[in-house]
């Protein structure tokens, strides 16, 4: 690890300024992803700005939305009464991720920005467009059991990157239509969740639309009627402490047995959390039924395409969508 200078500002302004003048500087929050990357030499900041002393830990109900500070810990959010009462989907997703210790360290902001777990990204002996743009994507013809089935473009040549976003939180936030609140030297910027994470396109090195030096200060979740019929469903290679192969965030607003609103997002299938707008639309107005869920799953999978080792996801994803919807609806 390269030596770095360490700073610990106590105001948001100081923190932003500390990064403004230094191209190779980084914020550090929980450190659970950044330190991993630094140890493996993938990130080598010359200046490390510790933001843990900033007043960004609050979780509050505001008019029309819940605001979660960027530094609220994953465990605090998961156990918070407001979250339990209004957005249990979020709590479920957080509890499905990482471990008790990691959730006590990981922050909201850091979780949004965690990098992919594609093994080719982590080992510098392999080419990787995300780490080293232009070098090629090793996963494409390599071991791609964990990789994407959506969201890579083949229009202008082979996909640039088929890594997936590993976060569970992101899948839930995507379904809940959250907004990421960001500050930079100019002031505040609000980024709708759908626009926050990117598809690889011609810049596979960029995971999000956050600009260099911008500080995430909060995540806002609009009030929504998803207090009850929600389910976060995660499939993994072992029973716990593993990243998902596929995960589904499902939220339903039911009127008797009819679906008023539906939200669906998939994890583990694309470079970003994969919101299923079409399938949601299809569900609205339908009665809760296996048929409706099957149709939704079919719609969801329309554009999916698999590689050598991840064809199972073409079956696992729709199965999981149906299961998540079934569990959310409370029928078994």
């Amino acid at each position: 690890m390269k030596p770095f200078h360490y700073l610990r500002p106590t105001t948001v302004k100081d923190a932003i300024n500390a990064l403004a003048s230094a191209p190779n500087a980084r914020f550090i929050a929980g450190g659970t992803n950044l330190i991993d990357l630094m140890k493996r030499g993938l990130v080598a900041p010359e200046k490390l700005v510790d933001i843990n002393s900033l007043p960004l830990k609050k979780i509050e109900q505001k008019a029309g939305f819940v605001r979660i500070g960027a530094l609220a810990l994953n465990s605090s959010v998961a156990d918070h009464t407001i979250i339990a009462a209004k957005h249990p989907l979020l709590a479920q997703a957080l509890k499905a991720g990482a471990s008790g210790q990691l959730r006590n360290m990981a922050t909201m902001g850091g979780n949004l920005l965690q990098r992919t777990r594609c093994p080719y990204f982590y080992d510098t002996a392999f080419p990787c467009n995300k780490r080293n743009p232009g070098s090629g994507c090793s996963a494409l013809e390599g071991i791609n059991r964990l990789h994407a089935i959506f969201g890579f473009s083949e229009k202008t040549g082979p996909p640039t990157c088929i890594a997936v976003n590993p976060s569970d939180l992101n899948v839930a936030l995507s379904a809940l239509d959250a907004t990421v609140v960001v500050q930079n030297t100019q002031g505040e910027r609000r980024i709708p969740f759908a626009d926050f994470h990117r598809l690889p396109g011609d810049r596979p090195d960029r995971d999000t639309t956050l600009e260099a030096g911008e500080l995430i200060v909060a995540v806002d979740i609009p009030d929504a009627p998803f207090a009850r019929n929600v389910h976060y469903f995660k499939v993994r290679d072992r029973a716990s402490y593993a990243f998902g192969l596929v995960s589904v965030a499902a939220a339903l607003d039911l009127d008797n047995n009819r679906i008023k609103t539906a939200r669906l997002a998939l994890g583990g299938v694309a470079h970003k959390p994969w919101r299923l707008f079409e399938a949601e639309k299809m569900l609205v107005g339908q009665p809760v039924s296996e048929t409706a869920f099957r149709q939704a799953a079919e719609v969801a999978m329309r554009d999916a395409k698999a590689f050598e080792h991840n064809a199972y996801k073409l079956k696992l994803a729709p199965n999981s969508i149906r299961q998540a919807l079934t569990l959310a609806a409370g029928i078994s």
Binding site: P119, D123, F126
Partner: peptide, 30 residues
């Protein structure tokens, strides 16, 4: 039986599962 596999990318003759997040061993919940 259920999870351990050291997977190698033969184009490089190099393992791609070289940590506990990719080479799974059982956890409590298993």
């Amino acid at each position: 039986a259920l999870m351990e596999e050291s997977a190698m990318d033969h184009r490089y003759g190099r393992y791609v599962t070289t940590d506990f997040a990719s080479y799974h061993i059982p956890v409590h919940a298993d």
